[in-house]
Write a protein that binds this DNA or RNA. Structure first.
Length: 572
RNA sequence: CGGGACGUGGCGCAGUUUGGUAGCGCGCAGCGUUCGGGACGCUGAGGUCGUGGGUUCGAAUCCCGCCGUCCCGACCA
């Protein structure tokens, strides 16, 4: 492609409304343009990257036996009602009506569609199957952000494994784990698989693939010592036991104006250190009021609460709701002798005594609380959020906390969809079993953005060869010098003949502009052809990564690039 | 949805406090001089000031409504 004929609208200034690095660079480099919140046109350069990412995903999916198909994105609402997700997905689901007044939805994922398709299967001999599709998904995100990282319309590769038994599901899951690692590493991403919460998807086990980045939206816990890795939504740590001393009787003491754990601890250091207090929170879980108990120095991880109670929505109660329920304001709340309300307590409180908690009367607290003796706990669960530096639950090493972008997520789904859609097959004895499903997703454009987030410098993007829009750019230093242009034209033709993807910067621009643009859009190799070099029969070859330049004879360039590029095309 | 900020040529911004009919830089077009790290000069094109209403002799500027965008929190590839 000749740059003079290409549509590559680069910008000198960063757009004012872009914050994330990938957003700034993709817009400045002419890869994308915003249409509305969470809605982008992918320009020619962006589309080339997108197709390469999609190509890598296809190759690896096909390699594990995946079969690509193409379900619609426009679904009858009926099947979403049937799976229960019509209500469950709430406002995130785009809904519309056709001319006959029938309800339709735009697909967010394709579990329903693939379950319907699986109705064709009738025997264990038909299994296992790995099916996938890669096209547009719609989500009415409450808050689209950061360019391509979180949008309302995007391309997702989602695949589904269909198996007769648990062992088959496990095998399909492991195949996907491997395929995903290869996909991300070929894209140049350092993605780590972490234990995750399944959230609204349902299912038993799930692994998220996270790429370290400041623009990420998840907090990840990893151990420096062993391979423990988990999303904070799931992560645990080894908490040191606290010495409770002698068991004492329940008491009451005045605490005027003491409304926080810290203030209470400061006023009564001998009995009310934060780890000797019980923190009492009031939550509404799907509308039901619940008391949540944690050690005073611990914080609640809401997703853990949802997972433990199998609830869909959690919100903190308002001060009015709290007063109506317990008769006191936050700061003096406690669960001692509370009855008729569900009480969920964190494991760290199990067996503890001599604790301090609110008395449900403003300005009063209780002392000598024995959790199991004095509180009617309905459910014990791991509810606390891990913080940086705590001991690893597996080896005791220090835990590290970092922000990551979720580039992929794999789930062991189970039989939820096969049961509701009646997808049963017979085993060798003629008995019917619901098919066991797994579901596996990768966001294509988010993957592109993640590459930019983790591979750029102050000049612009640094694409790995495997996903670069072009593998090399020829920069003609003097587009008005016939000898230079002739040499560059010949090189352009030869590189094209060697099937190297080349962008030929034949624009009548000053060299500085060309260099800056080439670096901004991140082409891995640049061949600089200038009058002085051509006279000596040499050109310069500059790598985008590190900007290392070496001079070489004009005749050697094609062979050299062919070797370098073909070695890196596959990635890894 | 709660909190904060913003909306003025393609991009980045000033002008709004104190109403007087829109300006700067970049980019763009033409000509000339330049040319191995975002050149310079001259000439020029391009704007319903997000939108609807109101106040006023007069509104980018003051008032009210609406729409949109970004950022921080609850959701997810």
């Amino acid at each position: 492609m000749r740059w003079s004929e290409a549509f590559i609208p680069t910008l000198r200034d960063a757009p004012a409304d872009a914050e994330a690095v990938s957003h700034v660079l993709l817009v400045r480099g002419g890869f994308i343009r915003q249409v509305a919140a969470g809605s982008y046109t992918i320009l020619p350069l962006g589309q080339r990257v997108r197709l390469k990412v999609a190509g890598i995903i296809r190759e690896e999916m096909n390699a594990i036996g995946g079969q690509e198909m193409m379900p619609p994105t426009l679904h009858p609402a009926e099947i979403w009602r049937k799976s229960g997700r019509y209500e469950l997905m709430g406002e995130n689901l785009f809904r519309l009506e056709d001319r006959k007044g029938a309800d339709l939805v735009l697909g967010m994922t394709e579990e329903e569609l693939f379950a319907l398709t699986a109705l064709e299967l009738s025997s264990y001999r038909d299994l296992p199957q790995i099916w996938y599709q890669m096209h547009t998904k719609f989500r009415d995100e409450p808050r689209p952000k950061s360019g391509l990282l979180r949008v309302r319309e995007f391309t997702m590769k989602d695949s589904y494994t269909l198996d007769i038994d648990r062992a088959g599901l496990d095998a399909g899951f492991e195949k996907h784990r491997g395929a995903y690692q290869r996909i991300f590493s070929r894209m140049g991403l350092d993605a780590v698989g972490v234990e995750a919460s399944s959230g609204a998807m349902g299912g038993s086990e799930s692994v998220e693939f996270m790429v370290r980045s400041e623009a990420g939206e998840d907090w990840i816990v990893t151990c420096a010592n062993c391979d423990y890795r988990a999303n904070v939504e799931r992560a645990t740590s080894a908490v040191a036991a606290v010495e409770d001393g002698e068991r004492e009787d329940l008491g009451r003491f005045p605490t005027p104006g003491l409304r926080t754990i810290r203030a209470l601890a400061a006023a009564h250091p001998e009995i009310a250190a934060p780890d000797r207090q019980i923190k009492t929170l009031v939550y509404l879980l799907d509308g039901e009021q619940v008391l949540v108990l944690l050690r005073g120095d611990h914080n609640l991880q809401e997703q853990k609460l949802l997972d433990a109670t199998v609830a869909v929505e959690a919100r903190a109660a308002t001060p009015e709701e709290i007063r109506a329920l317990l008769g006191a304001d936050p700061g003096s709340l406690g669960a001692v002798s509370v009855d008729g309300v569900k009480i969920v307590a964190d494991e760290a409180l199990r067996g503890r005594f001599n604790l301090v908690t609110g008395a449900n009367e403003d300005d009063w607290h209780r002392s000598g609380v024995d959790v199991e003796r004095d509180i009617r706990v309905s459910q014990w669960a791991d509810l606390r959020e891990v913080t940086s530096g705590e001991p690893c639950p597996l080896c005791g090493g220090a835990l590290d906390l970092w922000k990551g972008i979720e580039v992929g997520h794999i789930f062991k789904l189970g039989t939820k969809y096969s049961e509701t859609f009646g997808v049963y097959v017979q085993d060798e004895k003629g008995e019917s079993h619901p098919i066991i499903m797994g579901s596996y997703g990768i966001g294509v454009e988010r993957g592109m953005a993640a590459v930019v987030e983790s591979s750029h410098d102050e000049k612009g993007i640094v694409w790995p060869v495997s996903v670069a829009p072009y593998e090399t750019v020829i920069t003609v230093v003097r587009a008005d010098d016939p000898a230079t242009v002739e040499a560059a034209e010949r090189l352009y033709a030869e590189l094209g003949d060697s099937a190297i993807e080349v962008l030929f910067d034949d624009r009548v621009e000053r060299p500085g502009v060309k260099f800056a643009d080439a670096e901004l859009i991140g082409i891995p190799y640049r061949v600089t052809v200038g009058p002085k070099g051509v006279e000596k029969g040499v050109v310069e070859l500059t790598t985008r990564d590190g900007l290392i330049t070496e001079e070489m004879p004009l005749g050697d360039v094609v062979g050299y690039l062919l070797e370098r590029v073909t070695g890196q095309r596959f990635g890894i």
